[in-house]
Each structure stands twice: as C-alpha cells, then as structure tokens.
C-alpha cells in the first residue's frame, strides 16, 4: 500500500497529531476567562519585575517633607507616612509576596511529591505513618503556630518561608498519594509490567507525566493561598517586618481609623493587588484543572 521511501523522521514532521500538552493548551485557550486571568497575572508579574528597576525612587529612601502626598503626577500612588513612593513600594512588595509564594509552593510541592509518592507506592506502614502525620499537621491551628514561630525566631522572610513550607505540605501530599494509588492500578501500568518495562521508565515515562498536570494545578492554587496567608500575617504585623514591603504589610495603615477614613491611597492599591493576584491564580488554576481533566474533555 505505502511503498514510498521512508525518510528519517518524515512521519514525525508531517503529523497531524498533537501531544497531550498540546491538547491541554488548546483546551485551556478555549477558556476565555482563564486566558484573561493568565494575561493579567503575567502583567502583574512583569510590573513587579520592572517597576522597581526603572522607578526613579527607592523603596527605602524617604523624605520627611513628602509625607502622605495623595496620588499625583510625581508620585503615581502617592507617598506613605514617612514619605516613600508607594508605587515603587507596591511592586517591590509584590516581588516579596510572589517570591514567598513561589518558594513556599516549591517547598510544599517537593515535600508533597516525595511523601505522597512514598505513601502511594509503598503503602503499608509507610503510608500509615505519613497519613497520620498529615492529619496531625492539618489539625494544627495554622495562624497561631505561625505567630508563635515568628515570635520565637523573628519575622524574617526565611523564617516565614520555612514555617509555611513546614505547615502547608499535607494538602498536596494527599493529592499526589491519591493520584498515585489510582495511576498505579491503571491498566497501562499493568501492561508495562507485562511488557517487562523497567521500573525507572515506568515511573518517569508513565507515572510522572500523568501526575504532572495535577501537580501544576495544585501548585497554582497553592500560590493563591500562600499569598493570602502571608498577607494576613503581615497585616497583623507578624509577617515580614518593615521596612521590607509586602502586599500584606503595605495594608497596615488600614488598621488605623484616621488612615482608613481619610487616605484611601495608602491601602487600596495593595488590597487590589492581593485581590487581583489571588483571583487570577484561582481562575487560572481552575482553568488548568478543567483542561487537564480528561473527563471534562470527552474522548
């Protein structure tokens, strides 16, 4: 039937097929809301990267005679109580908030992946120990513990990251364990066994790629919750301590009635940033979940 000359990779080039990730991307692109949220998110991240670089103001330097200037052409978002440019501080704060969220997500994902796969693969007593441990961590009053740790070790960014990392891993651990338990019994894993495929290929080529979308979805949603928790702690003065700005401690003036009533530029911009970022992470995460879930895609 096909007697054409077989050229190297001829088929791989001229194919109409799409890989799984191409399908996920196409599916994600259909979700206009999620694409919009992703664009907003990218825009916010770019601002956090570039505004501090190009801003004529430093986030530290203050001028006593420039205190509490409302937004103007010179200071786009006005200045704070001691005369620092708020536009600059807003995006430096964004760097810190997003950086903490990213670091915590990386740590929790790593811990979650390790413990979740140990638990899922080996089962038995390893599973029992890890699952009881996650239950213990989940029953701890998170904010209280974080406050105690900060009180003991000081409120540096490192301490915050370590605390959040140590307390936020149970969620993803459970998800990964569940996925592995499910994937392990999938018939294609049995088929691999019947074909004599080695363990390394079975894990890296068959298990991991099928796990990855769930990890990405979870990590995206996790970013949102870390940003919220960090903001809450910093707002209470138990997070990152000034002068280092974060979106949370930029909100601090809202704790005082005089600012709350008269100077909205002090707290509305960081509030809006937190709201936008968290909402966008959630929408993107949901969009990704719909895109990777084969059940919502039909066969």
């Amino acid at each position: 039937m096909s007697e054409q000359v077989f050229k190297d990779n001829e088929l791989l080039k001229a194919n109409k097929s799409e890989s799984y990730f191409a399908v996920v991307r196409r599916q994600f692109m259909k979700n206009k809301l999620a694409v919009g949220a992703l664009i907003v998110l990218i825009f916010i991240i770019l601002l956090c990267i570039f505004v501090p670089i190009f801003s004529p103001y430093s986030m530290q330097i203050f001028f006593a005679d420039n205190r509490l200037i409302p937004p103007s052409g010179q200071h786009w978002l006005g200045t704070d109580i001691i005369g620092r440019d708020l536009f600059t501080r807003l995006f430096v704060g964004g760097r810190i908030s997003l950086g903490i969220a990213l670091a915590v997500t990386a740590i929790t994902t790593l811990i979650g992946f390790t413990l979740g796969s140990l638990s899922g693969f080996y089962g038995k007593w390893i599973d029992t120990i890890i699952m009881r441990l996650t239950e213990v961590i989940l029953s701890l009053p998170f904010i209280m513990i974080a406050i105690v740790v900060v009180a003991l070790f000081g409120s540096s960014i490192q301490v915050l990251i370590a605390t959040f990392g140590a307390l936020m891993w149970p969620g993803i651990t459970r998800i990964i364990r569940g996925q592995i338990l499910m994937l392990r019994e999938a018939e294609y894993m049995k088929a691999c066994e019947a074909l004599g495929i080695n363990d390394f290929s079975r894990i890296t080529r068959h298990l991991l790629p099928n796990l990855l979308p769930f990890i990405i979805v979870y990590a995206t949603l996790n970013m949102a919750s870390v940003i919220l928790v960090e903001s809450a702690l910093s707002f209470l003065g138990m997070g990152v301590s000034p002068p280092t700005p974060t979106w949370g401690n930029l909100l601090e003036p809202a704790r005082e009635m005089i600012h709350l009533a008269n100077r909205p530029w002090l707290f509305i911009p960081p509030g809006v940033m937190i709201f936008l970022t968290v909402m966008c992470f959630n929408i993107v995460g949901d969009g990704l979940r719909d895109a990777v879930d084969p059940k919502s895609r039909g066969r």
């Binding site: 294609y188 080529r205 068959h206 099928n210």
Partner: peptide, 26 residues
C-alpha cells in the same frame, strides 16, 4: 496480554510509536 478496556490500557501521554515501540527498545 491484551486488556479489556482499550481506554485505560493505553498511556494517554505517548504516541503509537512509543506505545508499541517502547518494549522493542526495552
């Protein structure tokens, strides 16, 4: 072995080349 469910017995991440050829390489 050939399994009952042709949906769950093929890894969705791999093209036919890999699905069929993987064992040959192994």
């Amino acid at each position: 072995i050939i399994f009952q469910d042709p949906y769950s017995s093929l890894n969705p991440r791999l093209p036919v080349f890999e699905l069929v050829g993987e064992a040959l390489r192994e």
